[in-house]
């Protein structure tokens, strides 16, 4: 079988493969934000554990991260969480077969379950947008109290 050429797209294929709808990109960003949040979270557990060692230890650690660079990083994390949580809620509903209607007879032009759940997609994305803007306003007040 060495004569076959493997035509898999590889990891790049997660991100882009052709002119597909929003959901394929939503899936990719879900994955990306998930990995980012996990990276932060695994550090977060150890950093916040310092609160158990008294006020001095806590202020020392917190003053280390109380810088504009980290604040912007935390805002990126906040955006990622808002997206991941709301898109995740949509995927959770979809994966349990909710808000997607019933199987229909495939009559051309075909309608798929994607189209039927798309209103939910737009609602959660709009909500995520609102939350991200609110977080942005909160961040501005950090820089200009």
């Amino acid at each position: 079988m060495g004569r076959l050429r493997d035509n898999r797209l590889g990891i790049a294929g997660w991100g882009y493969a052709g002119r597909y709808g929003f959901e394929r990109y939503a899936y990719f960003f879900q994955r990306l934000t998930g990995l980012g949040i996990l990276l932060y979270f695994s550090l977060h557990i150890f950093v916040t554990a310092y609160r158990a060692f008294g006020e001095q230890a806590w202020t020392r650690v917190m003053s280390g991260v109380d810088k504009p660079f980290f604040k912007l990083g935390e805002y990126m994390l906040f955006m990622a969480v808002a997206y991941h949580a709301l898109n995740g809620l949509r995927v959770l509903f979809s994966e349990l077969g909710l808000f997607m209607g019933k199987p229909i007879r495939p009559v051309y032009p075909y309608e798929t379950s994607l189209k039927r759940q798309r209103p939910l997609f737009f609602i959660v994305m709009a909500l995520a947008g609102v939350i991200i803007v609110m977080g942005g306003l909160d961040l501005i007040r950090y820089f200009r109290p």
Partner: peptide, 24 residues
């Protein structure tokens, strides 16, 4: 995994609101 995600949805909403929407 789904259930944990759903629990996190609510817990993280409160957690994020405390630290990132504190002025609101």
């Amino acid at each position: 995994f789904l259930l944990a995600g759903l629990i996190l949805f609510f817990i993280m909403a409160a957690h994020m609101a405390t630290f990132h929407l504190s002025h609101f």
